[in-house]
Amino acid sequence: MLSVKNIIDTENLTVADVNLIMENTATFSEVLSRDFKKVPALRGKTVLNMFFESSTRTKNSFEIAAKRLGADTVNFSASGSSLNKGESIIDTVKTLQSMIVDLAIIRHSDSGAINYISSKINIPVINAGDGKHQHPTQALLDLFTIGESFAEFKNLKVAIVGDILNSRVARSNICLFKKMGMDVTLVSAPMLMPVNMDCFNVKIASCIDDVIEETDVLYMLRMQFERQEKKYYPSIREYNSFFSLDKKRFMKMKEKSIIMHPGPVNRGIEISEEVMENEDEFIERIKINRQVTNGLAVRMALIYLLLASDQLEKEYVH
């Protein structure tokens, strides 16, 4: 059983929690490779998908995950809801909770929104991304993907490249990767880097070339132009010369190293067209699509663990 009732951030997960999630993910990953891809473990349960911020891959991933487990799903999106009539977030959430659902999956554009909402409702909550704060299911699916390529996590050299400042993926991944003993280097420019990063026990590099040869996992962040209120980084040309993965840099990398990206990729910015075109050829190395598939398995595992443990607890009480 997990030590937490909600999945809000990666910080509060214990190593035992992470291992349990990884084990369950492996099981569901196997289910997903079968012809019949369904385990009706959560039949009769209802999962509420609340996306206050737009999303396609995460939202669909959660919905498919819940359905594969036999649960019913209810979708809520902020546009067209009573939020437009001035209903407060908390009243919206409570209204939907009153429709008797068992689990809420929430994404919101404000950092801390999930901490806030989960403190006000009494069903388990999974954070599907809150502002620039956390995106724990992304971090867990990334960890699982790394685990498929390497025998152990300890001392793996991970480089996270790009816009750390605006990235919730970076915040959740740094925390989880450090927890699992990896050696994390951030590659970024001052205006894309938050202050006091040194307190997070990571190394810092200023150019991808400084780390490219020794990196096991090259994690490219999305250059999030939609999240930058003001653009301080000069240009794509400048970005390409310091942070982009092109063919030349790709060839310098270790033979067994892998490339990851939370998607969607800005072709020609984080990763060059040329590398992306060869995605199939380097399928063992470029893990971007594998991450998406693993996302499904991780989310099945989390929904299962939260609801199943909830059920176990209830049975114990009665």
Partner: peptide, 13 residues
Amino acid sequence: HEGYYSTKLGIGG
């Protein structure tokens, strides 16, 4: 305040 906690919490500093 821009500092360790703003970075951790993902709140603009």
